[in-house]
Design a protein around this nucleic acid. Sequence first.
DNA 1: TGATTGACCAACT
DNA 2: CAGTTGGCCAATC
Length: 108
Amino acid sequence: MEESFFIKVYEVVQRIPFGKVTSYGAIARYLGSAGSSRMVGWAMNHSHTFDPQIPAHRVVNRNGMLTGKHHFGDPGIMQQLLENEGIQVEDDCILDFQKYFWDPSLEL
DNA sequence: TGATTGACCAACT
DNA sequence: CAGTTGGCCAATC
């Protein structure tokens, strides 16, 4: 199966357990290219095109900041989804980010 | 078809 | 210490 880079991104994101989050760089690095972290964000932008059920809200930047919240249709949706999973979010930043951080390279 | 951008990260100046 | 640049892959102009 010759899956493209962004296809693999979707696979990883879909495997993020409930109540957990990860970062763009972590996924990109797990795939073998730390520089492709931008592609991860781009892939999330079109995630609904591939599969609208992709939990893109569980993917944040390295600082745990909800940088892509604007791409969920309306700002605030991303925070609502995270809080719905028991994750505390304040000022567009995840509290105890390390506690909820899920590294694909550790699980996969 | 070449150049630019994109929800980032890390290193260098 | 803060600003800039390089890097990666794919899509859009």
